[in-house]
Structures are given as C-alpha cells and as structure tokens.
Write a protein that binds this DNA or RNA. Structure first.
Lengths: 348, 348
DNA sequence: TCATTTAAAGAAATCGTTTGCTGTTTATTA
DNA sequence: TAATAAACAGCAAACGATTTCTTTAAATGA
C-alpha cells in the first residue's frame, strides 16, 4: 500500500507538499497536478491512523445503545448515522444488549478507543453509582458527550430527549376527551426517569379534569416487553378500567394479546393507547392509537449536537427536549354513556 | 492525557519496559508492579491510533447495511456486533439508506478508513459494474471481506447467506400440502439473486406436485415494501389464487391490508405466507405463517467468519448457507373442496 | 572466583502523517 | 530594475506506540 513518501518520490516533490495538496493548502498549480497524478497512478489514500496520531482526531463517534434488534433504536441509530456522516464522522456502535452492569465499562472502552465523541442512548444504569462516576469523569475532562433519550439530573451533561411529561399528558387527555374516567396506566421500569415523567403527565391530566388519581389503576410491568403484561393483566382489569394507557407500544401489544385471550374487544370494550409509535403500531389490529416519539429526529439532533460540540460551536452544556405527538388510530373510541347507546351506535 | 513516556518516567523505567508490561511480555516482577502502579496513578490507557500505526491493525470491522430502521437488519447487526465484540473487534456501521449508486463509494471509504475487515450486508448493487470492480479490487488485495445475505457469482468472495431456494420450496410446499393449487407469488426486486432463488424453489415445489407453473400467478412488486402491493393487488387477484406466497413479511403485510380493504378474509378466503419472520410477523392479525430466516445467526456467522479470516485460520474462500424454517401460524389454512364445506366449517 | 550463558532493560528506529521553521522562488511595487 | 513582500517548497521534528538491536545485570557451572 502506497504511502505519502511514495507519492512524493513519484511526483518529485517533498512529503510536505503532498500533504499540503491533500489538505488543500496553497501549492503551486503545477505541483498540485503532478501530485494528483502520482496519487492516482499509485492508488494512494492517506492512512487514517497516522493522520489521527498527529491531528488527535479520529472522525469516529461512538454510540452506545441498549439493543439494535428491537423496533425502537433502529430508527434513532439511522438518524444518528445520517447526520454523523453528513458532518464527516463515522459511527462506531456498541449494543449493551441490556446487560446489567456493563454500561460503565463499555463507556470507558469506547472512550479509550479514542473516539472524538460519545453518544449514549437511553442509559439504563444512569442512576447507579459506577455509571455516574464514569460520566462525571468524562464531563470533567471536557470530553464531547451527549446523552440521548435519557434524562439525567446529577451530572451536568448535554442531552436530548423527548417530552415524556407532555406525552403522558397528551395520551391521558385524549382518553379523557373520549369521556373515559377510569384510565389505567401501565409503566415499564418503575423508577426510570421517563416512566416517572409519563406518570406525572398522566396525573396532571387527570387533575385538570377533576378526576381523582386511583392508585389501583397504576401498574408496573417492570420492563417494556409485551410478555410482562400477561402476568399483571388480571390485576389491571380488576380495577375496572374503561381505557388503558400503556407506556410503550410493546406493552400495548401485550395488552391487545391479553384482551384477545380474554374475549375483550378493543376499542369497543376497552380503549387502548400506546407510546412510541414504532413501525408495528399501525400494523396491529386494531391499528394502535399512540404517542409518537420523533425517533429519527432524536438521533439526528443528538448527532448534530455532538458535531457542534466537537467543532467548538457549542460550548455550554445544553439540553434539548423534543415534542411528542398524538397519533389517533383505531384502538381508542369514546366511552358511551350506557351500554345500550354504545350498541346502537356501533350498529349504525 | 498521559502517554507511555509519562508512565515510564513515573515508574523510572524505559518506554520499552512499559510497553512490555502492557503487552504481557516478560518483565521482572518488581518492575511490573512499579509500572502498574504508575499506570493506575496516571489513569493511563494506550492510544489506539498509535498502536494501529505500528501494528497495522485497527480492531475495527466496517459493516455496510441498506438500512437500520426496518425490522430486518437490526437483528443481523445485533448478531454481528455480539460476535465481533467477542473476538475483540469494534463495529463501524454505515447504512446506505437504499441510496442508489452509493455502495461502491462507501465500500471504498470504509476501506480507506483502514478497518481490518468489511462485512457487506445485502449488496443491492451487486450486479452492477462499479460494485463488482470495487469488490474485485478488495479481493485482489486479499482484504478480509465477507458478503452476508447476498449471493454473488462473478466475484469469488467469502459469503454467508440463507437458503432461499429451500425457503421458496418450503413455503410453496406448505401451501400445496394444504391442497392449494392456484398459488400466487409476489417477488420483490425482479432480478435480485434471492428473489430468483425463491422463485425457483416455488417452481420446483409446484413441479414436484405436478402443478403447472402459471405465469399469471407470478408478480413483481419491485421492492419489499408493503405499499408496493397495493398497486398490483388487482392483478394478483385477477388470476384467481387461493393462496399467496409473499416473499417478504412486509409484502405479506401489504397483502393483508389490501385484503382488509377488499373484504377478503385471510385465511378463510385466501391463505397467505410470508418470508423472513421479522418480529412483527407474529403481531399481525391473523398471525403470519412465514419462512423464518436465522437473522441473528446470519450476523454471528458473518462476524465469526471475518474474525477467522483475519486471524488466518480461514485461508480459502468459502460460502456458508444457513437453513430456513417454516413457521406455521394462523394465516394459512387448508383449501376446502367446495365453498359450502368451507362455510359450514367456519360456522362450527 | 571467574568465565559463560541467559534474562531483562534501555536506546533508537520505525510506522505514515502533519506542521513549524527556514530558505528559496515568484510576484508586487516604487 | 532594484527592493521588498508574499507565496511556496523542503527539512526535520513531532505524534505515541512497538520492536529490533545492544547493553547491562543476574544466574549458572566449573
């Protein structure tokens, strides 16, 4: 493989001149042509590692993500990738595969690989000490770091996330406007920041409508997986809800399956709203009403942010909150005042 | 950031000694301890770029993929990532986003980034000249390269893919065993290698059952997207099929939607089988019968292969074909001899 | 105890770039 | 045309590791 010296020899100039041609510095036209020709003839391309060594930059951004095979993170990654590439960066991806306790180590490994910056997607262990320490260390060295889709209070770091409070509020409000009063909510992990915010949005919406919060309607699945719903489904229905707000589309799908098994018709017997608007939401029967998160945009904004931090355009730590949107489909319907009315209406 | 020289100074030994400690070469225990202590105190970690420069290795594998936001490639990438990490490699991902004409360039860019190897997922432009030339160039320089999920005839390169012929055969055979005789097939891109193989499997199955191939039952959507089905749906039904073999789950979903719009009941009026077994296949109503591709395994095998090529364990070019599996769910049912029988049965 | 072998440490070269400094050529101005 | 400024080219020193070669110290054996 040809080196810069080979090119210099062939073009009969010094290495410096070749380097200057490569980097667009001023070089006499005559020499530029000679160098270009030599480069072409030798099929030369500069060694990125050697470049990194002198410049101190790798043009690689590390991205840490919980998984890539679900419906959720793919869109974010795609958004990241596009924008990173646009800014001239490559994307190094590491999925933790929800492995408990792996995050701090992986952050460190990625960092030591000397990436120019790090995007951490949904840090699950954000509340745990080792993770906080690693993050603080990164921040203290001024290492370009963006947390995406995960709020963080204790460490002052740049972040992008979606307005979970507003999402919870919008979802609940939608159901309230359809005359529902007994609205159950299914949370994923109990103490995750986004779960708490969605719950708060839910409570606020109820409060504004003068509906008291009933603790019996608040349920915790433990995670965002469909299977986790089955276990708690009897509990959920025992409280007699007319509508369910599942805080992820996966959970909503679990509810849908459980309803099928129990002969409950959605939306006629029970309204259901999800969260995320992942691709399969519109594929379900009934098509799922849900709160859309701007996933691709999330990735793009995170990537843009890190690019600006690296270029020095953005110096102060800033947090960006993206809006959510209600997407009404078929899984929610207005609560009829009495069963009779409901029946007559559906017959029309 | 501390360098090896800083460590050497602090430990009062030479750089060479520190390097030897780092790489596990023989060093007097006393010195090893001194060095380790210095490393710890300085928070030193070796500069990967400098290492790459001398060793000529980056420990990074480039992966090129058509997209990351669909349901398909995420699983493959996850498989890749796991296995690459296991072998000590980082994964650099670049999605082409189905951008026409971009592949050859991107391969080159990734290559010049000096990755230790390249995995190309589903090369769409594999039949086009620029792509073939780039691949030939890579092969001629003995650059570690694995093509995954894309067969390639003209260039002799290592590859992993799924048995598309067998998949097409199994799908068709399943429908034949359910007494279907008028089986339509919907292909994605007309001339893609995997499409041709699936079609051949379809034809072979028909032939073995003594059913003549009817060209009116063979349809081309142009791509694997659900929307593409709507356009050709009237054509498909005009040929009077009792079953449809959609060569991707996305296409099958499109068929399902079209059927709903036209009041056709799946599986009672029409049996439907998909291909891929992406996560949403089991979420559809009816749950989709399909041909499962071992997506995660595909990624793992590709990653394992490139690791072995790089380590020198695998010297000759080899192709691996993974099996497919029929997953029977609810979207296929046996063809009743007459409509009356069918109706009486559904009433039971 | 001394000569000889062996093991470990150090010096210096190397990997392929970029860049500051210095010297030379070209262009500009009076 | 000469004096001066500006533009360009080349040398050599980084960048931070690894590794070969040499030197030094320790271990072995007679």
């Amino acid at each position: 493989m040809a080196t810069i010296s080979d090119v210099a020899r062939k073009a009969q100039v010094s290495k410096s001149t070749v380097s200057r041609v490569l980097n667009g510095h001023s070089v006499r036209e005559e020499n530029r042509i000679k160098v270009m020709r030599a480069i072409k003839e030798l099929g030369y391309s500069p060694n990125a590692q050697a470049r990194s060594l002198t410049s101190g930059r790798t043009n690689v951004i590390g991205v840490m993500v919980p998984d890539m095979d679900g419906p959720f993170y793919g869109s974010i990654l795609e958004g990241c990738q596009q924008t990173l590439w646009f800014h001239g960066f490559y994307m190094l991806v590491r999925s933790t595969h929800h492995e408990k306790g792996s995050e701090p180590n992986l952050v460190k490994l990625l960092w030591e690989k000397r990436v120019d910056g790090l995007i951490i997607l949904t840090p699950r262990e954000i509340k745990e000490k080792p993770m906080q320490e690693v993050l603080k260390e990164l921040v203290s060295t001024n290492f370009p770091l963006v947390i995406a889709d995960g709020d963080i209070d204790n460490v002052n770091v740049s972040g992008v996330w979606v307005d979970n409070f507003l999402g919870g509020y919008k979802a609940t409000n939608h159901l309230l406007q359809l005359n529902h009063r007994r609205i159950a909510i299914i949370l994923g992990p109990e103490d995750a920041p986004e779960a708490i915010r969605r719950l708060n949005g839910y409570k606020r919406a109820l409060k504004e409508s003068g509906v008291p919060v009933d603790e019996n309607l608040i349920h915790v699945a433990g995670d965002y997986l469909a299977e986790s719903v089955f276990r708690i489904f009897p509990d959920i229905m025992a409280a007699g809800p007319t509508a369910i707000f599942a805080t992820s589309d996966e959970l909503a799908y679990g509810v849908l399956e459980a309803c099928k098994q129990h002969g409950i018709n959605v939306p006629n017997d029970l309204s259901l709203i999800g969260y995320d608007d992942v691709p399969f939401a519109k594929m379900l029967t009934p098509k799922l009403t849900t709160i859309a998160q701007p996933l691709t945009a999330l990735g793009q904004v995170a990537a843009g942010k890190i690019a600006r931090i690296i270029s020095g355009e953005e110096r102060e730590i800033a947090k960006i909150i993206l809006p959510t949107e209600l997407v009404v489909r078929e899984s929610t319907t207005s609560l009829k005042v009495s069963k009779e009315v409901a029946y007559s209406k559906t017959k029309v």
